[in-house]
Structures are given as structure tokens and as C-alpha cells.
Amino acid sequence: MDFDLSPETEEMRDMVVRFAQRELAPPAAFDAVDFRRRWLAAGRQGLVGSSVPTAYGGSGLDAESAAAMMEALGFGCDDTGFAFSIAAHLFAAVMPIVEFGTPEQKKTWLPALGSGEWIAAHCITEPEAGSDALRLRTRATRDGDGYRLSGSKCFTTNAPVADLFIVQAATDPDGGFFGLTTFIVEAGTPGLSVGQRYEKVGLRGSPMADVHFDDCLVPATQVLGAEGSGAAVFSCSMKWERTCLFAAYLGAMKRVLDSTVAHVREREQFGTPIGAFQAVSHRVVDMMVRHESARLLLYKAARGLADGTGDEIGPALAKIAVSEAAVQLGLDAVQLRGALGILDGEAEALLRDALPARIFSGTNEIQKNNVARVLGLNPRRRGTGRL
């Protein structure tokens, strides 16, 4: 086993870190204009289209290299929400077009999505369909050469700034796994509207809102994959997201871990650096163990995705490990800073940003169910459950 990244990948990581530190500093509060400025800069640097094939203007990175890119972005960019938005765009919305799109669809949308000119959002979650993703109430009804979409999506990342929406809707409400269909819908399409931006506990640099479809007519040429293949499209996007997106948390964790080590070396109590106290030093070692363990699981999953193994367990385990490690590392970083930890700063920001990680991309409880199902412990009834 080789645990080292290639020299080319290491060089890319260093470049991404330097770029993020130089160009992606966030404003004090979310600003849509500044968000778009940073997005275009990230596009010029090749980040938002990193895993798009070179034929369509991307860098053509495989899953392992894409994870390394996201890890570097999470380390170099203080705004984990911005890194999260890039990952949601790339892995949940763009990669489905890469893997399921027709040549014409790829030619039409991938260049702008990969260059940073356009931003994509993935519409799946609904008020009544979160973990139970096959029970969507958004309907797509055939109308001549197109489909009429009606329904609402919630908690949609990038919705307030998106130019393109990847939408999951039910074409056969009783069809279970084969009842969903994926649509590509451009912003400005009549019948599509976006609600107010949410104010969130964490990931504040990532805009999120509800999306509504009111008799929204979408041409049949904008079906992604075949009718009834929506669940397969969604499953594919989640493998990318559960692996590569969470690499951004590895970078953020390493940044906070490094600063925590520096803090306990310098902070003195009772005439000695607090890092000399066993309670403190052991907590730091525990932080390192969690980070390194989660990192190994994630890169193992990324290697499997790059090799096309079809592994279902690896991405689920990586998602669980990284999200739980990020929350605990955030708690430890706050604790070791004492009163400074509850002031505005990177320790409390990591903790706030980490809390949603146990929920999105399928809750950690659902991931455990998925692993147990693959092991044959709780076979899922046909047509139910999160993918």
C-alpha cells in the first residue's frame, strides 16, 4: 500500500493552498457579489471544474486527486462554507452530467459549469422526503415534448446564486427506485422560483434556500439519463459527494489542529506551557488520531471510486468518520483555548461548520443503515429508504 500522493498531486495541493489563502478570504458577512467574484477566481484556477473531463474544459481529475484538491481548499480557505458550495456544485450537480449526460448536454452545460461562469445546485430534499429520498412529492408529468414540474425543494445549497438546477422528481410516484427522473433546469425558466436565503448555524458562507416549481415546463431533451433512472443518478452523485466533499473538512481540521498545537505550546499556566500537562497533550494526540484515521478512510474510499470498484461501504464509512471527527475536533479545539475558544475564531467556526456534516449527504444514522444493508443485516424493503 502506498499512502503518499503523487508528486504532481502534492504540487497541485500546494498551489491550491496558496491560491485559497491569497484569493478566497471571506467578507465579514455573506455577500452575493463577493461570492460570485471568488467563484470566478476559483473557476479560473480550475477548482470548480476539477473533475470535469478535459474535453469540456475541466482538469479531468479522478476521485483521489479531486479529494486532494478539496482537502487543500479546506486547509487554505477560512470559509469552509465556500469550499462546501464548490463541492456541492461539482460532486452533486456537475458530476451527474459528466456521468449520465448525453454528448449534447455535456457540450451545452459543462464548459460554463467548469469555468466558474455558471453555478449549479442539486435539488433533492423536500419537507417530507429527507432520509426517505424515494418518497418525493415533486411531480414531473409528461406534456407533449416536455415535462411539467410541480413541487418544492428545501435546504438546497447554492440555490440563491445558481444558474442551473439538477432536479429530482417523481415521474411514477409508486415506482420506487425506478419512479424518479432527473431534470436539468436553467435559472429563469418560467415556473421556477427561489426562496429567501437561510440563516444557518454553520457553513454561513454557503448560500441555501428553498426552490419552488409551479407548472415548470422542461423539455424532454433536459432529462438527465433516461426516465426512471433518477435514483441511479442520485446514488452516483452521493458516492462522489460522500467521499470528495468531506475532504474539505479534513483540510479545515488540519488547519485548526495545527493552530491548536501552536496555542498549547505558547499558552502558559502555573509557569509552564499548557501543552506540558498530560490532560492537554493527550487531548491533542486524540485529535490527531481522529484526523489521521478519518483521512485514511476517506482516501481509501476515493481510491475505490477512482478505480470504479462500486464499493458502497467505503464512502459511507468515510462520511461517518470525517463528520464525527470534525465535530469532536472542534469541541476539543474550543476546550483547549478556554475562554478564547468561545470567541469568534477558527475553533468555534470549525465546530459550527462541522455540525451539519453529520446530517447532509444522508445522516450518519442512514449511513450506518446503508452499511448494515450491504452486510445483509437489515435488507431494505423495496422502494423505501435513503440511497
Rank of each mutant, 00 (worst) to 15 (best):
A252Y: 01
T221S: 14
V256G: 07
A159H: 03
P26C: 04
D14A: 15
F30W: 14
V371M: 13
P219D: 03
S50K: 11
E241F: 15
V17L: 03
G151V: 00
K368D: 11
A279S: 14
T189S: 12
W240V: 00
G202W: 06
R267C: 13
P7S: 03
M70P: 02
G76L: 02
A140L: 01
F82M: 09
A159E: 08
D174S: 10
G271L: 12
R135K: 10
G58N: 14
F270E: 13
L73E: 06
Y198N: 10
P26H: 05
K107W: 04
A55M: 05
L164I: 11
M288C: 10
A252S: 14
S361E: 12
R255V: 01
L387H: 07
F234H: 15
V185Q: 05
D344R: 15
L217N: 06
F213N: 08
A66F: 00
S85G: 15
A41L: 12
D145K: 07
G81W: 15
V264E: 02
P7M: 01
A252V: 06
E126A: 01
A88D: 03
A159D: 08
A354Y: 00
F75A: 11
C244E: 00
T272W: 08
T141W: 01
S150R: 14
D31M: 10
R358G: 07
D31H: 10
C216D: 10
S323W: 02
D172M: 06
G385P: 04
R22G: 04
D258R: 13
C216P: 10
M208Q: 15
M238G: 03
L203A: 11
V334G: 06
A66K: 00
P27R: 02
C77L: 07
R36N: 08
V201A: 05
H89N: 02
L297V: 03
G304F: 09
E64R: 09
T309A: 02
P190V: 06
D62F: 07
V17P: 00
F178I: 09
V233A: 01
S150E: 09
N364I: 14
Q45K: 14
I97F: 02
A20N: 04
Q335V: 03
G114N: 12
A209Q: 05
A306S: 13
A93P: 06
A262M: 11
R44Q: 11
V48A: 06
R37K: 13
M287E: 07
G308P: 09
G202P: 08
E312K: 12
M287F: 07
D31K: 11
P207D: 13
G58Q: 13
L351W: 00
L73S: 06
A306W: 14
A25E: 12
P27S: 04
S51K: 13
N370V: 13
T189E: 05
A170Q: 09
T9L: 00
F84H: 14
F270V: 08
M69L: 12
H282A: 09
Y56K: 09
E186D: 07
L317F: 08
E104A: 10
E268G: 04
E312F: 05
A140E: 02
G383D: 10
D132R: 08
W118N: 12
L297I: 02
Q222V: 03
E292Y: 14
P127G: 01
A67M: 01
D163T: 11
A321C: 09
R295F: 00
